[in-house]
Design a protein around this nucleic acid. Structure first.
Lengths: 68, 68
DNA sequence: CTCGAGTGGGGTAATTGGGGTA
DNA sequence: TCTGTCCCAATTACCCCACTCG
């Protein structure tokens, strides 16, 4: 039954990412525009984000060494 | 080359494509109707999509530098 | 032929994109 | 500089039922 999955990576909708980050979907769109987030575009122009990337960003930031 | 394969291109069902794009199967049907996706119709009227085409669309554009 | 699941077609509500502003 | 909200137009998601697929 698993012979019917070509190659699909888990993608998230803007609303999903926005909920995970507790921000507005528009803000997520700005991140994508700024190149901070990898965005896969649908054929209609909407964006889909990689769940792995979002989760990695949520887990911990690869930057910020000094605290404030 | 002892492969007995006539001309079998890997075809995907609407549900397959929908999962890869994280959209609804109906949305994939709309893409086919809009001519954005190459759809092969079965004898019953159902649609099948080329895996190569879908994958190419998912990847995006292979051209992009630091220009925007 | 029967059966479960998926698909097509149409219609309507919700989300998304882009720009401008606070 | 970054985010939230407004507008409007386009795209997408979910409802129905009948037919096709394997």
């Amino acid at each position: 039954m698993t012979t019917r999955t070509p190659d699909a990576e888990p993608l998230l909708t803007p609303a999903e990412v926005a909920t995970m980050f507790r921000v507005d979907p528009k803000t997520v769109t700005r991140w994508a525009k700024a190149g901070k987030l990898t965005s896969i575009r649908t054929l209609g122009g909407h964006r889909r984000y990689r769940e792995a990337e979002v989760r990695a960003l949520l887990k911990g930031v690869p930057s910020m060494g000094s605290d404030l």
